[in-house]
């Protein structure tokens, strides 16, 4: 891995503009009536923004394999936490959760 490889100032500015654009887009998307897709769109945009920050500002894209493993492990363990918790709550009574009130 070339230690000196890191993104240029132009890359940073391009990422910054994209992040601001997606912030505007997520506020706009919230004004649309999309039902359950509102949450999916909002989280999708947030994830794109988070990936841009992590890959380019935190330079994960240019980091060692070991660092990438740690980043993926963090996501994996969060998914484990969320997944196992929801597998409990969402299966309590099967059809009565989430409640409608």
């Amino acid at each position: 891995m070339d230690e000196h490889a890191h993104p240029s100032v132009m890359t940073f500015v391009a990422v910054w503009i994209t992040l601001l654009f997606f912030t505007g887009l997520t506020v706009f998307a919230a004004t649309l009536e999309l039902g359950p897709f509102n949450a999916i769109v909002a989280l999708g945009i947030a994830t794109i923004k988070a990936l841009l920050v992590v890959l380019f500002f935190m330079e994960l894209h240019y980091s060692t394999a070991l660092t990438k493993v740690i980043a993926i492990a963090a996501i994996f363990f969060f998914m484990l936490l969320a997944g196992l918790t929801l597998s409990d709550y969402l299966t309590r009574g099967w059809s009565t959760y989430p409640s409608t009130h």
Binding site: T26, A30, T31, A39, A42, A46, V53, F57
Partner: peptide, 19 residues
């Protein structure tokens, strides 16, 4: 940047549930 990433998720989850 990590603290920024946390906010990137907090903003839609807390502010934008229903406009």
């Amino acid at each position: 940047h990590f603290v920024d990433v946390i906010w990137i998720y907090l903003f839609p989850l807390l502010y934008l549930i229903s406009h």
